[in-house]
Write a protein that binds this DNA or RNA. Sequence first.
DNA 1: ATCATTTGGTAAAACGTTTTAATTGCCTAC
DNA 2: GTAGGCAATTAAAACGTTTTACCAAATGAT
Lengths: 343, 343
Amino acid sequence: MMKKKISIKDIAKLTDTSITTVSFVLNGKGRISKEISKKILDVAQKNGYEPNRMAVGLRTGVSKVIGLIVESIGGPFFGEMAKVIEEEAEKGGYRIIYCSTNNNLQKGKDMIRMLSQQLVDGYIITPMKGLEKDIQNLVDNEKPVVLIDGYFPGTNIPHVLVDNFASAYNAVDCFVRSGYKNIGMVTADLGLIQLNDRSLGYKAALKDNKLKDSSKTVLKIPFDMDKNEGVEAIKAFIEKQKQMDAIFFTTNYLGTMGLQAIKDLKLSIPEDIAVISFDDNEVFSLYPPGITTIQQPTYDIAKSAIDILMAQINTHKLDASKIDLQIPSKLIERGSTLAKVSA
Amino acid sequence: MMKKKISIKDIAKLTDTSITTVSFVLNGKGRISKEISKKILDVAQKNGYEPNRMAVGLRTGVSKVIGLIVESIGGPFFGEMAKVIEEEAEKGGYRIIYCSTNNNLQKGKDMIRMLSQQLVDGYIITPMKGLEKDIQNLVDNEKPVVLIDGYFPGTNIPHVLVDNFASAYNAVDCFVRSGYKNIGMVTADLGLIQLNDRSLGYKAALKDNKLKDSSKTVLKIPFDMDKNEGVEAIKAFIEKQKQMDAIFFTTNYLGTMGLQAIKDLKLSIPEDIAVISFDDNEVFSLYPPGITTIQQPTYDIAKSAIDILMAQINTHKLDASKIDLQIPSKLIERGSTLAKVSA
DNA sequence: ATCATTTGGTAAAACGTTTTAATTGCCTAC
DNA sequence: GTAGGCAATTAAAACGTTTTACCAAATGAT
């Protein structure tokens, strides 16, 4: 059965022309007469000719593949992104090769090294601490790169992400508008700039609202803590901060851990404690009384990222080094931040 | 800056040997003396030599890439799978190129066609109606293929999936054990064999338990219905079936729609209605009182799939056509199926 | 009529590898 | 000492494209 793939050479033979002619016709390059063109196109069509990407890649140095390196595709945030990126890339004839690092630095380095074996034409990467050198190296070698969801302060690598500072600021503002005054925060210890920006936004908002900004109101979950331990830590935190009437979770997974903790403590939302979490997801919309969240504009982020990458790929001399896109988020207000009734 | 990639030819020049010698040493093939080997290895190492995958691919016809075609990587089920597959593939030096079809048949066909341009060495595909021909074609051309999450009845394509029949059967059994007798089902109209198997399991269990099996107790949500419409449909269904005291949702997304519907109707779980859903996820564990779910063994499925694929790739003559792996699921019992108290 | 230009087409090199078959020198056996 | 065998190395072909440079014939200008 195994019908051999047909090559440009076969087509040349079949149409009594030369390899060059066929290549020209197929790529619309040289000047070939209508008749011959038609004949070649017909034969190619009929035999289902598809160019051998390896050969093209070898000859041209272009793979038509872009590398997507994310922390974990499992999350609700990246799944959505991946979809958009893939869809958009496909329009330009590009495919996505996907790798996840699971926050493992060595794995990240390995992935970059592997992909750089003239395998991909560009990169979309969620940066992690320690990868600066490797990524900068790509940029220096004139490989198109776009960072999403984070960036490296002080470097010139284009990036697009949500406006973390403003988002966190707005969250606190929302609490304040509803009458909450003792606002705690739970964040993670991943060394990620985006989390840091969220912390800064939180602190700035507290300050602007003349609320107490004690380091006591902040809990940092170590990056290697598992889910159960995390829940316990949050429970302890809540019990210790008796006066706290609102909590801001800086990531989606912290938010669900927080809900578990609050449930375990048999506290009610928002009467005992109001809640806002980063990253909207199904849990938050469904969980009674509905959890107020900061919805990241995943579509916009992904779209912008791939657009910028494509622009770099297509026009070689584009200077993308100054691109710093911070996209506003949307605060989805739900029951967990209803106005406080009494004191 | 742009340092040219070093090639095997460069190494040959640098070490005063031939291209062949270098290739042999690097691949541990020919018989080359220790000294020369060492010299070559050293130079290669020092210059960070990496083989050009395109060239290797062209010459050998092996791309070291496998294609993963799924319905949507967004879902909780596939995100997890993708991770395992990627991890496992990497051990064999393979990378994953990923595409999603969004249940669009043409897109599925296109993806297969694109990937087959000698781009990938094997496929892991979640099958959809209408793709039989295209996939069978791959198999006929001796491309390794493994289907996950579904299969084509009557064809000889290896597949691995959860035991849908038994899983649904167990769900009904669980209801019965807890005293529920009027058990409805909500499923989708996607033409997927796995959903069909779940329906069969449900019906068989009803029959074995001598419960009424009326087509009235089954709701089929059309595949093109959006979320809100779906919720409304489920609400109407519940209101109409007054005597119904338990519902089985055949997929994860139907389950969350169902929760929304039940919430809207202000019914309480499990007093007014007991619930089981396919596909465990965070919502179900968190949503009070905890929703009983059928947890798919994602790890096992993914691991088996990639293992079978690798086996096919590595030993060309493996006959995988008879592989039909149905892996048991795990019923996670939570509050939504607590024993019924009275009648 | 002659030279320049355009038009339609092709030969051949190159991309970086793998692999087959050949070459050289050396050793062993008779 | 010569035929055969083995060890170490390499030349060259091939994978399927793209592209440069060239060629022949036809057209146009003088």
